[in-house]
Amino acid sequence: MALPDVTTYPLRLASPLALFFGAFFAAPLVALLALSLRGAEGGFGLSQYAAFLSDGFSLGVLLGTLWLGLKVTAACLVLGLPLALVATRAGGWVRGLIILAVLTPLLTSVVIRTFAWIVILGRQGVINSLLSSLGLIGTPLRMLYAEGGLVAALAQVQMPLMVLPLMTALSRIDPSLWDASEALGAGRWRTFFRVTLPLCLPGLIAGAVLTFAAAISGFITQSLIGGGQMLFMPGYIYQQAIALQNWPFAAAMSVIFLVAVLAVVLAFNALGRLARGYAQT
């Protein structure tokens, strides 16, 4: 007689959550899809999608949002990878300190972190008072409601999402590989590009996907730092749904936004597979 398997649990234990997700996650998304197919004069069709995709302004908002996400992801990568690498190599209390520095903002409210950036970037803010006391500028610079300020603020808000998966991936690399690479005559840069980077790619892709997804849907930061002049998809959807009560159009926009996000996430993953193939050659 075969022994009963005591190490796994029956799949039916997942059914309460599966039902909950079916009712309150999948069904709302189906409702969204259904509503987006409602035409302007009743009836069903793709007219809402046609309206969005043929409107230069709307397309501009969509592309601007995706472009913003890429810029923030790049900024998080350029700053986050060195931080994760330093933390992993250092170990001990330096590593603990960096983890605390990464965790605290991750768990602090987005509103508070964005609010801090208003204090930093504002006319009387930290940067402007510093520059004017050094005599470098006469009139305050405009950084609030400007794209550079928005990218910096979003990068800070989302950086933990990049650093944590990177640290996980880097801590799995056997340190003797670095010594081996050096002993075989590779310099630091070559070791970084040929050993470290390929081996931490899974973490890098995971971090990039999370950062990108969070940056493009970071409604609060976009609206407080970007102000009224810069419109991105979340703000545009909110405006159409709440201020204008144009639900079918807002639903179509949401579906297009979801599909665009999914496409970029899949592209990131494909890029990861491609890069892994390259690393093995």
């Binding site: 350029v78 700053l79 986050g80 060195p82 931080l83 690498l85 330093v86 933390a87 960096i98 520095a101 990464v102 605290t104 903002p105 602090t108 508070i112 972190r113 609010f115 801090a116 950036w117 204090v119 930093i120 930290v126 910096a152 990068a155 800070q156 950086m159 933990p160 650093v163 310099g187 630091r188 840069w189 070559r190 970084f192």
Partner: peptide, 28 residues
């Protein structure tokens, strides 16, 4: 030179990231 440029840039960027992460909390 290789070592100096790599370690220098690495620590500079890491320090910048750390300041960026901590400054907003401290300022608030």
């Amino acid at each position: 030179l290789d070592r100096l440029s790599f370690e220098g840039l690495l620590h500079l960027l890491a320090a910048l990231a750390l300041v960026l992460l901590l400054a907003p909390t401290v300022i608030v």
